[in-house]
Write a protein that binds this DNA or RNA. Structure first.
Length: 553
DNA sequence: ACTCAAGGCCAG
DNA sequence: CTGGCCTTGAGT
């Protein structure tokens, strides 16, 4: 089960530039010059026990936080509750997610320390290119953060520090940025509200990921979801990447340069994410508040098949049960797409070539986290005991990933492919196929079937609940609660389909029939991911891998 | 007027 | 190069 041996050799990537010994002391190169920073003692290698995991983010305590009384899951706070409990002061006293030093405030989207703020700023502004002489997995902490800027910067990105321009997708304006292309001083960015909102969610999540790593390092297997790892050092991610050598020191004007100054070296501008089309279904609603909702791309397939007769009309929409309306409100597709493209951008930032499979795993992992986040805050689920929650999630996570992708594709026009920051093409569809390209036909068939049924957002969210609240899952303690939830959703879906799609014969029945198909597809994906993981090709210590192991226990 | 997250400065 | 402190200035 241990992949370590095989991997160690693989890790010696032919793309690794072995940096010559270069004094680390005086005289930083002029701004914009290509640099290879070599940690003191040119051949410094991280001792294994100091290596951090490339994308370690496993954290059972995040998934299932214990209440104050230590009674896990007796009551899981609803969304926002955690937020409210997290006082600003407390947060400020947190540790920098990059190095663990004292946080000095929000910098580039995260609470970080002053030094990492400065480091991140210098790196981005001066287009620094670093090289890691070890395995690109150096442990970064307060005392060692200077040793490997490559890994430090990578960690900055991994924990979520924002490059210039990333917020544009959210706020549609050039004036918000993290590192500012125009170097304008002063002023306050406009994502203050986002900082506040994210304080307890994203940031806490990231932070806890870091903590989880440390916990795991100490006691692997004690407290996690499932811990099937033979070694925390097994399968250091295989990556073939080179940092982009400095081409020129373009001075970019804020107007003309939409992206980070670092874009100078990239073959083509970053492809903006497709407009977040979250409100497709809501767009039909007379209550649709934002005109923006209509500005989004029309759904790929639904638009192709005009469905004036079958789609719910405004009046029918009004008859939708409040529960389903509430369900729909739990969906945050904007967030989904923002994190997707945010991750894709940050992971390919300053990289010539990244391992696309590894990247896909990272995206899936992130999706999984939002999946859990979503589930944790939903009715029916959040009152269950942790053990039950775990079992339900372990059983349905891949199904939900597949379903989500179908939803993103059908209702938000998610394209099949996107061009990464570094020019590589990333197969978005693969996310829905859980990495198995040969499932594409099956996936498309499924999608067509759903399109024929005029599968819409309420359908989607109901089916998602049906996947999650599966009373058949073995070992559930509170089966009644799960079954009640399942049946309630089932009834709501039936009612919805009858009310809003009376012309589609047995839409409900047909939708239910699709569930096993989704499951079959997801199962094949899981198997594939597991195999790749065993072959050492997938990042370890991720929630994704945890889930894969969980089922096999 | 105050806040606070940007960029800038410069001793080490 | 690093990181602590300073300056700036839009938002509140």
């Amino acid at each position: 089960m241990d992949q370590q041996t095989g991997l160690m050799s693989l890790n010696m990537s032919p793309f690794d530039l072995s940096p010559g010994p270069e004094g680390s002391g005086s005289g930083g190169g002029p701004s914009g010059a290509s640099q290879q920073y070599v940690p003191q003692g040119a051949a410094y290698q991280c001792p294994p026990e100091q290596q951090s995991f490339g994308y370690a983010n496993l954290d059972a305590s995040y998934l299932f936080p214990t209440g104050a009384g230590g009674e896990p899951g007796a009551y899981l706070p609803a969304a926002g509750t955690v937020c409210d409990q997290t006082d600003t002061k407390d947060v400020i006293e947190e540790l920098c997610p990059v190095c663990g030093d004292k946080v000095s405030g929000y910098h580039y989207g995260l609470l970080t320390c002053e030094s990492c703020k400065g480091f991140f700023k210098r790196t981005v502004q001066n287009k620094k290119v670093y090289t890691c002489v070890a395995e690109r997995a150096c442990h970064i902490d307060k005392t060692q953060r200077k040793r490997c800027p490559f890994c430090r910067f990578q960690k900055c990105l991994d924990v979520g520090m924002k490059l210039e321009g990333e917020f544009k997708y959210i706020y549609k304006s050039n004036c918000f940025s993290a590192v500012r292309a125009d170097r304008m001083r002063g002023g306050r960015n406009k994502f203050g509200p986002m900082y506040k909102r994210d304080r307890a969610r994203k940031l806490q999540m990231m932070r806890q990921r870091q903590i989880a790593v440390q916990t795991l390092r100490g006691s692997l297997g004690d407290n996690g979801l499932v811990l099937g790892f033979s070694s925390p050092y097994a399968a250091v991610p295989v990556k073939q990447e080179i940092q982009i050598p400095q081409v020129s020191s373009l001075t970019s004007s804020p107007e003309s340069s939409p992206g980070p100054a670092l874009l100078a070296a990239q073959p083509q501008p970053p492809q903006p994410p497709p407009p977040p089309a979250h409100d497709k279904w809501e767009a039909h609603s007379p209550h649709s508040a934002s005109p923006d909702a209509f500005a989004f791309d029309a759904p790929a397939t639904a638009a192709a098949t005009p469905s004036s007769t079958a789609e719910p009309t405004s009046t029918e929409t009004l008859r939708v049960s409040p529960m389903i309306r509430e369900f729909v409100q739990t969906i945050d597709d904007r967030e989904w797409q923002n994190s997707l493209f945010g991750l894709l951008q940050s992971q390919t930032y300053n990289q010539c070539e990244v391992d696309l499979f590894e990247l896909m795993c990272k995206v899936l992992d992130q999706n999984l986290f939002s999946q859990v986040d979503w589930a944790r805050n939903t009715v029916f689920f959040k009152y269950l005991k942790v053990d039950d929650q775990m079992k339900l999630l372990q059983h349905s996570w891949s199904d939900m990933l597949v379903l989500d992708h179908l939803h993103q594709r059908m209702h938000n026009g998610l394209p099949d492919e996107t061009t990464l920051h570094n020019g590589q093409k990333f197969d978005l569809l693969c996310l829905g196929l859980l990495g198995v390209p040969s499932l594409a036909d099956h996936f498309n068939e499924l999608q067509n079937k759903l399109a024929e049924l005029k599968f819409d957002v309420p359908d989607y969210i109901c089916v998602k609940f049906l996947l999650l609240l599966n009373p058949e899952v073995r070992g559930i303690v509170n089966v009644k609660c799960v079954r009640d939830g399942y049946q309630t959703v089932q009834a709501a879906l039936l009612d919805y389909t009858l009310t809003c799609y009376p012309t589609i014969q047995d839409k409900f029945g047909k939708l239910v029939m699709v569930v096993p198909e989704i499951h079959a597809l997801a199962a094949r994906g899981e198997e594939h991911l597991y195999q790749r993981h065993c072959a050492g090709q997938a990042p370890t210590q991720t929630l994704l891998m945890e889930m894969l192991h969980a089922k096999r226990k």
